[in-house]
Design a binder for these strands. Structure first.
Lengths: 273, 273
DNA sequence: AAGTTTTTAGAATAAATATTCCAAAACGTC
DNA sequence: GACGTTTTGGAATATTTATTCTAAAAACTT
């Protein structure tokens, strides 16, 4: 065990999240996989076994054990005990429904539609449950006081970025969309007093991370909208809005991300009046 | 095992409750203690062990095992498995969490988030109920047989258009995104055998309608993704995918539209293999 | 490129947990 | 109060699950 890790393990879910965010930067590959999977499935810890979680993370059970110890626990059992005690009731059984849907009408367009609808609903639900209010408030603060908001998001994140640009324009918030058109380097557009809103999901695009780091290096605040606390952009950001989307097959929805984006944009817009 | 007990165990929490109520009248002392304690602590089954529950009920573990079998399961593990799968994310459940988010007061960032989450969910629900299966099948047909798919969507529809372009690219469907950059007229890019996928919402952008009409005039099939059957684009389209979004204040969500877009893109992609 | 440290996988082991079984107790019937 | 039936408790066993340990691989350092 590392001397840097305090011996007292997180005693609440909040503390657990904090420690997770704190250590995940400095984790080697397998342990980071553990961290990511645990972060995305924090609500299933109480009802899972080591083997199940390890399989989900794509690591051998022993890696997950090491992860538990790095988090400050004696082992998985101690960690799980905390989650079992901290649990709260209530079961809308969506997991089983989704499983049923998947085995059902495979392939037809309307079956696909049903899948994506369900994935979207689940994502929204997860967002409601896991949203970090403090981070959201901080993000609004940063963007509401910025001179100009620079929005960057490519590939899968681009629709979100362009939507934010649209809403900001409608609300007369000075914003600039960095879209990668022409492979121009827009970094010189950053001025003192500006802020960056960076959106990226695994696999993280280097351009986005680069702009965020650049801004950070120049002392400009960065708000990140991303899918993992362990995202490479996290280090460069002052506020991290984490959104996990449920995916169906290889395709991930954007419902939760857009809901978060809308809330952010409207909050910023009305704060600036 | 009793012949009166059907061999198929309850598969949902509801069924479990029903069976519990049905049998508990005719149970001997110890087994009734089990039934009572289980009924009172139904939400702890997923996170407890046989020993814990037995102790809570004041019976030996073997009594609880017999109880599980009377309920129709092979043992405790099978019963617990059902509850673990049904165990939806524990922390505050969805509705109470939404209520919590709103306590920040109207206009607070988290209240806004709650509203947009709710709007998104409602939109998805409506879509699930009202989707026109025939139109969707026809749209997939048209796009799957097209040489190149021309995607056009501006303003609020642009994020959807760019997302479709992204998914098509990932699925190796030849597609071209008409983005209005430089106010160029891209209509001459349309060739015989191509198809147009036009996305527009009120107030409908003239560029989108123009491209659709042009394609129609030249005999190319047009698929429309829009919000009204009376949309100006409807006349020019061979298949109309109608999606109505719930709006919150002046802001309309995109959840349902994106779910439809994903289903469409994936269906087309896999049809083209 | 050789040596040092860190990280990893998986087999081996330990611990917890579930399940069975049967002798004894309780119950009901005559 | 003896006899068959049902119910019970707990010890014995089986199974699952967690944890440790070590040799090998990978990643750094110099």
């Amino acid at each position: 065990m590392d001397v840097l890790n305090p011996p007292n393990p997180p005693a609440t879910v909040e503390e657990f999240r904090d420690r997770l965010a704190a250590v995940s930067d400095s984790l080697p590959r397998r342990l980071r996989q553990c961290a990511d999977h645990i972060a995305a499935n924090i609500d299933r810890i109480a009802v899972s076994t080591v083997a199940e979680l390890a399989a989900g993370a794509g690591v051998p059970p022993s890696a997950l054990m090491r992860f538990c110890q790095i988090m400050g626990y004696s082992g998985f059992s101690e960690l799980q005990k905390m989650f079992r005690e901290a649990y709260a009731p209530g079961f809308p059984d969506y997991t089983t429904r989704l499983a049923n849907l998947k085995t059902g009408g495979a392939g037809s367009p309307s079956a696909l539609l049903a899948e994506f609808v369900e994935a979207g609903r689940l994502s929204l639900e997860t967002l409601a449950k896991s949203a970090d209010e403090a981070a959201l408030v901080e993000a609004v603060d940063i963007l509401a006081t910025a001179r100009t908001v620079h929005i960057i998001g490519l590939r899968r994140a681009f629709p979100v970025a362009s939507y934010l640009a649209y809403v900001f324009e409608k609300m007369q918030v000075p914003a600039m969309l960095h879209d990668g058109v022409g492979a121009l380097d827009h970094r010189h557009a950053l001025r003192d007093g500006d802020a960056v809103l960076a959106i990226t999901f695994a696999p993280y695009s280097v351009e986005t991370v680069a702009i965020a780091s650049d801004a950070q290096a120049r002392g400009l605040p960065v708000v990140a909208l991303t899918d993992r606390l362990t995202s490479p952009i996290a280090r460069a950001s002052r506020a991290i809005l984490m959104v996990t989307e449920v995916d169906f097959g290889a395709f991930r929805s954007l419902s939760a991300t857009l809901a978060m984006a809308m809330a952010l944009a409207v909050a910023v817009g009305s704060r600036r009046k």
